[in-house]
Design a protein around this nucleic acid. Structure first.
Lengths: 158, 158
DNA sequence: CCATACCGTATGTATATACATGTATGTGGC
DNA sequence: GCCACATACATGTATATACATACGGTATGG
């Protein structure tokens, strides 16, 4: 092994270069960092603004439906909404028919925070789109949407 | 508002559909879930296998360099390696010249675990590549690599 | 040669994420 | 109506992630 790597290390080195999980996670960290920095003045993290945007588009909605929309576990959503409830941006109410169900919606503060944050969201989005180039963005978004569908139809049911 | 959405909610609904942060994170959750399920028999999570692969390709390396490679904070790396050190897969040794520096490398158990996991990694990678289609993968990987470079050159230094 | 600034890493705190499990509620068969 | 089962959500535990800060080690100017 002239390069100083064992055979399995050589394989691993090749694998990591094309690993879809590694690259998707690395890119999501980088993009989240940029969004977080630009969104800092709003007091919202990128994840939290995404949550507000999804809720605002579909409110009122159940935790399970929110989890489906986010391709996230419902126990995760149950927790990620907590800081936003504490901050008074999201409210939840028990369904009167089926008391197991929580209906999630934005408070008026939530709507206001969303409205204030959207211009900075646009800044971050434009900044990244400019760096990547329009054609890259055009191919990236559909590819990411395809990838996001993997979890729901696959192993999930097996 | 015939659709029942306020103006800002309508904007937010449009924004989230094209948000690079939201879509990248959603895709990374979906892909990570598939990898985690397929890798379950190895006892390694997708994130941990990625770590082992990167370390094996460049060992020994400093925590800061590992953080750069992962586009992650060095304080994050300092913690994410802990479960792997505890499991005996990764070892760290203090540099004899500069005792601030920790040199990270795989133990023999780490090399063995990596070797055992690689076939399942290949299963997961192939499974997802097949679902996405070869041309999508070919466009996705370079786009993700471009995106991953955003963090290092941008706001980071400002 | 010491004070100070700088560098590499760790810790405190907070959020994000998911699996296993628990709890409360609803539903259907008998 | 009661019991088994299913459904919706929460909690326990563990890992991933990052910022502010602390701490020890190194280098450097005076």
């Amino acid at each position: 092994m002239e390069n100083g790597l064992s055979p399995s290390s050589e394989l691993a080195a090749q694998a990591v270069e094309v690993c879809l999980c590694f690259h998707t996670r690395k890119a999501s960290r980088a993009i989240t960092q940029v969004f977080d920095h630009i969104l800092a003045p709003t007091g919202l993290k990128a994840t939290q603004l995404s949550l507000l945007m999804v809720v605002s588009a579909r409110e009122p909605l159940r935790i399970g439906d929110l989890a489906d929309a986010l391709v996230s576990d419902s126990t995760t959503v149950s927790r990620t909404i907590k800081p936003l409830i504490k901050a008074g941006l999201i409210q939840d109410s028990t369904d009167s028919q089926d008391r197991r169900i929580k209906r999630i919606s934005l408070s008026s503060s939530g709507h206001a925070a969303l409205e204030r944050a959207l211009p900075l969201w646009q800044d971050a989005q434009s900044h990244i789109a400019k760096q990547l180039g329009g054609s890259t963005v055009q191919t990236l978004l559909p590819a990411l949407e395809s990838a996001a569908k993997l979890g729901s139809t696959d192993e999930r049911k097996l």
